[in-house]
Amino acid sequence: MDVHFFYLALFFYSIATVGYLAYLVWVKKPLWKACRAVLVAGFLFHTASIVARYAEAGYTPVTNRFESLIFFSWLLVAVYLAVQTRYTLPVLGAFVTPLALGLLLMASFRAKAILPLDGQLDSRWLPAHVWFAFLGDALLGISACFAAMYLLQEKILKKKKIGPLYYRLPSLEILDRLSYRCISIGFPLLTVGILTGSIWLKSSQGAYINWQDGRQTASLLIWFLYAGLLHGRLIAGWRGRRIAWMNVIGFLVILVTFLQLSHFQK
């Protein structure tokens, strides 16, 4: 059942992505409202696929690649929809929906069977770790989308090449402020996620960190990168392009880590 919902979500996200991208370049007002409706429909199926899988498996479905990809992209869309309730920013949709769609497409190539739970993964700490870390990552992802929008608008204003994007994208100030706000919530969540992950590791493997595990080393690297970014912004007064690039690179590292390194996930 969950797999059917998954495909429905995939279908709706594809339509929403095309719509949002079209909106970004040339189409007028009414289109983004339709996009939002389609995205919300996709999100409901997405949610249903996770709930159905949880009901069937009896544990939070984040134990293999397929499940993690679905869960992470679900949080991305959830955070986007939450942001959307406070700020009408359909342009952001053109950045978030392709990302969520990409993750779901990757998931679609993975094994989808529900497997009996590995002993190591059967821990109460795991869901806590996953919720915090993934939600933190999702917020950092949205922040990176804002940063990417900032870089585009910045380039337009600097090079004076006025096109459709110039009209669509919000002001530099707003993009900068929103990307910072997302980090200021996402980073603490990521921190708690790393701590709970460490506790889980201690309870299952007896050590707080396993240096042989590239994923854990990368998590620390990511943490330091964002800590540096926040420090630079607050203390050294870094601004503009530099901070936006760090933000985008930070999230790319998160994505690569997430997609590449995971010795316990099949």
Binding site: L157, L172, R177
Partner: peptide, 19 residues
């Protein structure tokens, strides 16, 4: 969309500073 030079300047200022 602004169609006078002085208004274009204000529009650009808003694209940079927002408020």
């Amino acid at each position: 969309r602004a169609v006078s030079v002085s208004y274009v300047a204000v529009e650009l200022a808003k694209k940079i500073f927002g408020d």
